[in-house]
Write a protein that binds this DNA or RNA. Sequence first.
RNA 1: GGUCAGGUAGCUCAGUUGGUAGAGCAGAGGACUGAAAAUCCUCGUGUCGGGGGUUCAAAUCCCUCUCUGACCA
Length: 307
Amino acid sequence: MMNKNVIVITGPTASGKTDFALKLAEYGDIEIISADSRQIYRYMNIGTAKPNEDELSRVKHHLIDILNPDEEFSAGKFAEISKSIIYDITARGKIPVVTGGTGFYIKALFEGLSSISDIENEKRLVIRNELNDVLINNGKECLFEMLMQSDSVSAEKYSDKNPRRVIRALEYIKLTGNKFSDTFGKEGSSGLVPQYYVLNPAREILYKKINQRTDEMFDNGLIKEVVKIIEMGYSFELNSLNTVGYKECISLILGEITLERAIELTKQNTRRYAKRQVTWLNQIENFELIEDKNSNTFSKIIDNYKM
RNA sequence: GGUCAGGUAGCUCAGUUGGUAGAGCAGAGGACUGAAAAUCCUCGUGUCGGGGGUUCAAAUCCCUCUCUGACCA
């Protein structure tokens, strides 16, 4: 019988997930699956706090540097790909460790998303653009009205009128002709059992670390990195570049804000991001909070996996 | 020393003819079913610079003190 356990290390940005996972590798034969929506992109290294080359070579990492900044990705793809990687790792007798702070990806992997037929990509983008136009011209109320009329059950669920989610539902309805709400409750289980380990430092300490790390990123050439990506021909409007640290540098490059302001904004937006990540932790049912990082902690995690 | 302009939420400021105060930003909390580092929702009591006076009632009018800025000496 194959082991279905998966070690998951999560927590807010700058909480020390990467270091923790690398340290864990000293106690067991692990491979890391990155659950990070930005580290999947090539060229985005400094601003995403991606592990460096040395760290990447020390332990086998998956789902880092797999896409160019103009390529689309999704939680669904993450769930699909990471699942098969995990089964493969396990089959080879190694220990899979999911590490990252993208809560939605982790949820999609273990709890599954509603199984829906594949949607044609091009057509979908056309519809999404149309709906985004509606949003710009008529506002989110209008989008919500549209959803209300075609699928009131979904509308009920999206009562905050979040345009992203309303658009997603409308997209599905337009493409398939079915109600989006019909897919609810049809999640496909991964069959994997997550063992959650959460790093969640005291807010004060975390914020201090964030501020410090942001200064380091700018010192280490974050602006240059962004300039380089733009010079490669990638539009600064890409979703991948709508990322903390990158968007602020783009504003700086466009002359909209000063360097000082860019740094300050990056710190502020990182703090807000960290807070949102902490909120994600609320919905993890069972997890162990990591407070001590001694050898006992690590060997216990490995032992738990093997049980 | 004199004149003027100011002193209201952590910050920038609103506050109509007197009826004990409200926006933006910051901050906090939350949501999340294929864009998620995204996107969205909720939350505003503070000696209205201090003291005194007028008034049923003062952030608002009067007096005084104090601080800041500009200008004049």
